[in-house]
C-alpha cells in the first residue's frame, strides 16, 4: 500500500494534466469560459446579499454580521468539499474505459476530482478577499487559512477515495450520497454559527470534522480570533487517519475495479 502511495508521486504530471483537462473541458464551448469561475461565486454572493438584506433581513447575530459575507466564507469551502464527494462517487464508473483498457492508477481519478474542485475554490477566493477587505474584516489570522485548506484537502481526499471505491461495488452510493451531503450540510456550521448553538447539540456536532474545519475558516477569515485552535489541532490526526483508511480501503479493492466498472 505504501509503495502504491509513493508511486503516486510519479503520476504528478498525469494528475496535473488531468486537472487542467477537467477545467478546460468544463468551460469548453461557453462564451465566457474561465470567467465563470469568478462570476459564479460573485453571483452567489450577490444573491445572498440581496436575500439577507431585503427579503429576510437578519438581526445582527453576534459574529455573523454581515450575514451574506459570513455565509459566503463557509459556502466556498463547503462547495469544494461536497462537489468533490459527489463527483467522486461516479468517477471510477465514468472512467471505466481508462481502468479497463490502460494500465492506469485508478486513484488518480478521485484525486483529480478533489484537485479540480480545489482550483474552483481558489478561483472564488479573490471575490471573497475583495469583500473581506471592503468590510474591513481582513485580519492577521488569515495566515492560518492555508493550514486549514491543507487539512480539508487531506480529509476530503481520504473520504473521496473511500466513496469512489465503494460506489464501484454499490451503485446505490451514487444515489444516496446527494441526500447524505444535504444532511451533512445542515450538520455543519455553514448557515449558522457554531458559537450560538446549544451545548447539547454542539456536543454532537463536535464529532463532525467539517464543523471544526468550517469554524476554522470563519475564525481565520471572518472573526479574526483563532479561539478554536485546540479543536483544529485535534483535526490534524483525524484527517490523517481518514486519509489512510480511505486509501487503504481503495487499495484493497483496486484489483476488482477492472472487472466491476
Amino acid at each position: 500500500m505504501l509503495k502504491n502511495l509513493f508511486s503516486l508521486f510519479r503520476y504528478r504530471v498525469l494528475i496535473q494534466s488531468l486537472v487542467v483537462r477537467e477545467l478546460k473541458a468544463r468551460y469548453r464551448g461557453s462564451v465566457l469560459g474561465f470567467l465563470w469561475s469568478f462570476i459564479n461565486p460573485l453571483l452567489q454572493l450577490l444573491i445572498y446579499w440581496f436575500v439577507f438584506s431585503y427579503i429576510m433581513p437578519t438581526r445582527d447575530v453576534m459574529g455573523m454580521s454581515p450575514y451574506a459575507l459570513f455565509l459566503f466564507t463557509g459556502i466556498l469551502p463547503w462547495t469544494w468539499f461536497s462537489a468533490s464527494v459527489l463527483e467522486s462517487s461516479g468517477v471510477l464508473i465514468a472512467g471505466g474505459n481508462l481502468i479497463k483498457k490502460i494500465l492506469f492508477p485508478a486513484e488518480v481519478l478521485p484525486i483529480v476530482v478533489v484537485l479540480a474542485n480545489l482550483v474552483h475554490f481558489f478561483l472564488g477566493l479573490p471575490i471573497l478577499l475583495a469583500f473581506l477587505i471592503y468590510y474591513g474584516k481582513l485580519n492577521a489570522t488569515i495566515v492560518y487559512f492555508p493550514f486549514i485548506v491543507v487539512m480539508q484537502l487531506v480529509f476530503t481526499l481520504g473520504l473521496c477515495l473511500f466513496v469512489s471505491a465503494l460506489a464501484v461495488h454499490f451503485r446505490d452510493v451514487q444515489n444516496i450520497i446527494g441526500n447524505l451531503m444535504m444532511m451533512w450540510f445542515f450538520a455543519s456550521p455553514v448557515i449558522y454559527t457554531y458559537l450560538t448553538i446549544s451545548p447539547s447539540i454542539q456536543r454532537w456536532l463536535n464529532y463532525n470534522p467539517m464543523t471544526h474545519i468550517l469554524v476554522g475558516y470563519h475564525q481565520s477569515l471572518f472573526t479574526g480570533s483563532m479561539g478554536h485552535w485546540p479543536w483544529l489541532l485535534a483535526m490534524v490526526p483525524v484527517s490523517g487517519v481518514v486519509f489512510f483508511v480511505g486509501y487503504a480501503f481503495f487499495d484493497r479493492l483496486r484489483e476488482t475495479f477492472a472487472e466491476e466498472v
Binding site: R21, K24, A25, N97, K101, I102, L103
Partner: peptide, 13 residues
Amino acid sequence: ALIELGAGFHPEI
C-alpha cells in the same frame, strides 16, 4: 499498456 486505441481520449478537448 494499451488495450484499446483512443481509450482515455476526452471528447470535449
